[in-house]
């Protein structure tokens, strides 16, 4: 899906293609719990979630939102080129939220013979509330 992208074609300030997903459904929490093995009932059981202080019930796994950011990244940059990907979980995501992932290139450099690009990414909901901020690095092929 991601076409080969060359180092020479990426410039600081370039935007990553935006990804919009949602509204997210509780059913997806169940699917993600099964796939990932994270069965914390905070994500699947409204009664439990309310009992531990979430007044609206379940919240999404943070790693599901990181996975959605990952979808945006490898929809653009081929998976095999990725070297680092890290996020900070900044806010809780609830069923009904629509998540928009954006990103932009903040640096590019040649390091140990690798053509590295650095991008900052963020996931926000429909109100602009930040769920995840992060950064990734990829080593791209050169046309040279």
């Amino acid at each position: 899906m991601a076409q080969e992208i060359y180092y020479e074609d990426v410039n600081v300030g370039d935007a990553m293609p935006e990804l919009v997903k949602g509204p997210l459904q509780k059913l997806q929490h169940v699917m993600y719990a099964g796939a990932s093995g994270d069965f914390n009932p905070l994500h699947t059981d409204d009664d439990f979630a309310k009992a531990v202080g979430m007044k609206d019930g379940v919240i999404a796994h943070g790693m599901l939102i990181m996975g959605i950011v990952g979808q945006a990244i490898t929809g653009w940059i081929p998976r095999k080129d990725l070297k680092k990907f890290g996020v900070r979980f900044a806010g809780m995501t609830k069923p009904g939220n629509t998540i928009t992932v954006t990103g932009s290139v903040t640096d590019k450099r040649v390091e140990d013979g690798n053509n590295i690009i650095v991008c900052e990414v963020a996931a926000k909901d429909e109100n602009g509330d930040v769920k995840v901020t992060g950064k990734f690095e990829a080593a791209l092929p050169s046309k040279a």
Binding site: M1, M31, A35, S36, G67, I68, Q71, T74, G75, R79
Partner: peptide
């Protein structure tokens, strides 16, 4: 199957 299942749970349609 687990690689595919995780992608499906995330909703990532990337065929790789």
């Amino acid at each position: 199957g687990k690689i595919r299942e995780l992608a499906k749970a995330i909703g990532d349609p990337n065929p790789i």
